[in-house]
Design a protein around this nucleic acid. Sequence first.
DNA 1: GTCTATACCGTGATAGAC
DNA 2: GTCTATCACGGTATAGAC
Lengths: 223, 223
Amino acid sequence: MAADHTRTAIITAAERLYAERGFADVTMRDIVAAADVNLAAVNYHFGSKDELIAELFVTRSLATNRERLRELKAAEEAGDGRADINAIFAALVGPTLRGCLGPEKQRSDAARFMIRASIESVPPIRKIKNREVDHLKRFAAAMRRSLPDQDPADIFWALHFALAMAHQTIRDSERLTRMSDGLCDLNDVQAITDRVVAVAVMALTGKPAKAPLKEPAKAKARA
Amino acid sequence: MAADHTRTAIITAAERLYAERGFADVTMRDIVAAADVNLAAVNYHFGSKDELIAELFVTRSLATNRERLRELKAAEEAGDGRADINAIFAALVGPTLRGCLGPEKQRSDAARFMIRASIESVPPIRKIKNREVDHLKRFAAAMRRSLPDQDPADIFWALHFALAMAHQTIRDSERLTRMSDGLCDLNDVQAITDRVVAVAVMALTGKPAKAPLKEPAKAKARA
DNA sequence: GTCTATACCGTGATAGAC
DNA sequence: GTCTATCACGGTATAGAC
C-alpha cells in the first residue's frame, strides 16, 4: 500500500487542484507540490500530463456510466424488456446531473472536476468523450424497444438533445442563473432532471402546437 | 492600406490555421510563419495570443449576433410588437446553425473557426461568451412579450435549452452521425433549425404526454 | 508608428544516477 | 521507485532599427 502511495497522492492532489482552479491554471509543478512528490513522478506513473487528466476523467466517467446502465437495466426489467421512455431518459441524464449539480457548498472535488471537464474540454478529455458512442447506442436501442414504431432518426435526435440539455445546464448553470436573475433554480436537481426528461420525451413523441416535427414519410427508400 | 497589412495577414493566417488544426496545435510561431511576419508582431498588434483569439472570435460572433437581432426585429415588426414564438427561436438559433453547419466541403475558414471555438472552448473565448447575457436577455424579453402569460422561469429554461440543442449539434455533429450510423442528416441546416425550434417551442408551451413540466404555482412568494 | 532580432522564463518531458 | 539535472519548446518582453 506504500507502493502506490505516490500515485494516489498525485491523483488526489490533481483532482482537487483541477476542481479548484481549472485545467489552464494548474501546472505539473503545482500538482507535485500539493502531493509532496517529485516532479518526475507524474511522468513515471502516468506517462504525461494528458494521461493523468485522462485517468482522472475516465475513473469518474466510468462510475457515471455504470450508474446510467444500472438505471437503464432496472427500467427495462420493470417494463419486461420495454422500458418506459421517461425512465430511459432519466437513466441517461439523471446520474450526470446529480453528479454535477446541487448545492454549491457541498460539491465534492470529483463533482467540481467533472464540471471543469465539461466546461473546459481539454484535448485528452475530448478524446475519451469521442469513444462514448457505443455506450449511447445502448440507450438508443432501449428507446427503439420502448417505442418500436418511432422513426429511428427521431430517436437519435431526441437522445442527442437530451444530452445537450443536460450538459449545457452543467456547463452554463452560472449563465442561466444570471440571465434569469436567479429565477431558474439550479439547486433542485430532481426538478431539473424532470424538466430535461419531459422536454426530451416531448421532442420524441409529442406534437407541437403549430408545425409538425417533420414529414412522417422521409428517409424510407428501402425495404 | 499597406499600413495594416501585417495585422490583416496575422488575422487571416491565424483564422485559417485555427480552423484547420484547432487551438491546441497551432503556436504563434506557426502563425507568423504562415503570415510571413515577425514573431513580435503578434504581441505588438494584439497584445497576446489570447487577445488575438479573442479578436477573431469577437469579430465573427458580432456578425452572428447582428443577424440574430435583425431577424428578431423583423419578427417583432411582423407581429406588431409580439413576435411569433417560432420566429423568435428561429432568430436565436438560425444564424448560428447556418454559420456552422451545412455541407462540409464548402465551409469557410470563418465557419470552421467558429466550430473549433465551440468545441475547444479556450479561456479567451469562454470569457467573451460569458458576456453574452445581455444579448440573450433581449430574446427573453421578446418571448415575454410574445407569451405574456407564460411563467418567466419557463421562458429562460426554454431559451437555455434552445441554445443547448443548437450548440451541441454544432459541437458533436460527428458523434451524432456516428451514433445514428448516418441516419441523422447534418447537411440539411433548415431541417435542423426547424427541429430545434419545434422542440424549444414544445418545451415552452407544449404539454407532455404524461408528466406536467412543473407545478403551476411555485416561486410566487412575493407581490 | 511599425517592425525585427533576440533573449527570457515557465512548461512538460526525459536521461541517468541512486 | 525515486530523484536531480537538463532539455526543447512555447508565449512573452525588450532594445533598437527603420
